[in-house]
């Protein structure tokens, strides 16, 4: 197979692995799966399986728990395995070549992918506002594929065809503050999501509980499960204390409405 056809097929493979989230976060983008597929394209499936296993172990900690991004395993695995097979080297070579590419690719695809998703989210809002549910569904499906489809599926075949050195130097010229800035924005944007959620669920008489939840985590860093448990216990205390007082027709759970420093609400 010529290098050009291989490059195109690798691009198709990236596109396919970007469907990971569309197909139920089903792990098709794990190195253990992508390794053999890359091997197949490169003409040595067995080497692909073994390298995939090695890279799977290297990326073992890479999971997207609670919104933190793993390094871009997709391009790391595919390029690493492809170059290693091409140069007749072992799994260690796949790792050495794969990890730096993974880091750079991640910075680029995140700097472009997340803003695209962000914009689509607001287009979806508008679709719903106007009652266009078909447009909403179409944009929802489109958004994920566009966001992750415009970067790596195009860059990876180029990187494969022209060699890593050239591509890394071009990619390296993108100023670092752009990707750092997107990382920082990743911490700021949830404030907006929670503010919108709070418009819906923050009622005057229960406001202090938001701050209980907030400061318990800010001070101690315990998990939200722990905070939920604490809230259940507070409710239990409120329930029993009210029961002891009087079994009136008033709501059992009665909350102090006045708190200091909450005037803005």
């Amino acid at each position: 197979m010529s290098t050009a056809i291989q490059a195109i097929l690798l691009g198709v493979l990236v596109m396919l692995s970007n469907a990971e989230w569309f197909l139920g976060t089903c792990f098709i983008q794990r190195p253990l799966i992508l390794g053999p597929l890359t091997g197949l394209i490169m003409g040595d499936m067995e080497a692909g399986i073994i390298m995939g296993a090695t890279m799977e172990l290297a990326f073992a900690g890479a999971t997207s728990i609670g919104g933190y991004d793993p390094p871009d395993m997709i391009s790391g695995t595919i390029l690493g395995v492809a170059f290693a097979i091409n140069s007749g080297q072992g799994p260690e070579m796949a790792l050495t070549l794969g990890i730096p590419i993974a880091t750079i690719m991640l910075a680029i695809s995140n700097s472009i992918g997340y803003p695209i998703l962000q914009i689509f989210a607001h287009i979806c809002d508008r679709n719903i506002e106007e009652g266009k549910d078909k447009a909403f569904q179409r944009n929802f499906i489109l958004s994920g594929f566009v966001a992750w489809g415009v970067t790596t599926p195009l860059l990876l075949p180029l990187a494969f065809y022209f060699g890593t050195d050239k591509v890394t130097s071009i990619m390296g010229s993108i100023p670092e503050f752009v990707s750092t800035g997107m990382d920082i924005a990743g911490g700021l944007l949830p404030a907006m999501g929670f503010a919108m959620l709070a418009q819906m669920i923050m009622k005057k008489d229960v406001v202090p509980f938001f701050f209980i939840g907030y400061f318990v985590v800010a001070y101690s860093g315990i998990s939200t499960t722990g905070v939920a448990l604490l809230a259940v216990l507070i409710l239990a205390v409120m329930f029993t204390m009210n029961k002891g007082r009087a079994l009136s027709s008033e709501p059992v759970v009665k909350v102090e409405t006045k708190g200091d420093g909450l005037d803005e609400f």
Binding site: F209, Y214, F215
Partner: peptide, 10 residues
Amino acid sequence: LTVAGALTAE
């Protein structure tokens, strides 16, 4: 709301 507060902090 308590959980929302906790998640905001997180």
